[in-house]
Design a protein around this nucleic acid. Structure first.
Lengths: 104, 104
DNA sequence: AGCCTATATGAGTATATAGTCATATATTAC
DNA sequence: GTAATATATGACTATATACTCATATAGGCT
């Protein structure tokens, strides 16, 4: 990343994908190892590993090694706040679109 | 979008790109027409139009027509909150990485 | 009507992304 | 040492994305 806009975007992008959102939701109540994460999100181990690594690189997740296992966790509380705010927008949008349908 | 995770991701994705972040920053203090937006963000008119349309479709922006001009605006206050929280994460990351460099 | 301005879109390209399968790299247990 | 487990990565594919240039569409003005 070079300028601040692309670093800023990179952080948001690390949350803006269905599998990555599932990972964040899973980590909401604490750290998990990769071996727990990939079956929980229903994705391959290799694919999950790539998502975890890019989320680590962009500062969304942190990790800790314990023997063979590597535990990933949400690095900043702001991550969950962002995900929750986006969920609120989604709710507004869904109810808004329902009203539009009713109006017809 | 089919499931909630992909709609959720779509909303975040509509902010997770440098040009789109610049658009959001520009609209922070009020609506602007496309003719004002594209020179301000330094992007082509056609490219800016596409970004604006996808941000509209995902519920991040709203638009209003006034004669020839179309004014885009931030649709939900949560959008700015999300952008600000991501900026805070970026700040934490930058200071954190500086500490790492100092420690070496 | 014709002309100008503002916005959107079709078509194309180059790059990025998410995904898979196979393999490499630890780390632990025996 | 070997075997087994956990994670990461190389190589590849298919699709998505951001972008450009040219053109279409629509509204206002004379």
């Amino acid at each position: 990343m070079n300028d601040t806009a692309s670093m800023h975007a990179e952080i948001l992008n690390a949350m803006a994908q269905p599998t990555r959102l599932k990972i964040i939701e899973l980590l909401r109540d604490g750290e998990r190892c990769v071996c727990e994460i990939f079956p929980a999100v229903g994705s391959e181990q290799s694919n999950t590993s790539r998502h975890l690594n890019m989320m680590l690189a962009s500062g969304v997740l942190s990790r800790r090694k314990d023997g063979l296992k590597i535990f990933y966790a949400i690095k900043h509380p702001e991550v969950l706040e962002i995900v929750d705010l986006a969920a609120r927008i989604m709710t507004h949008e869904i109810t808004g679109r329902h009203k539009l349908l009713k109006a017809v």
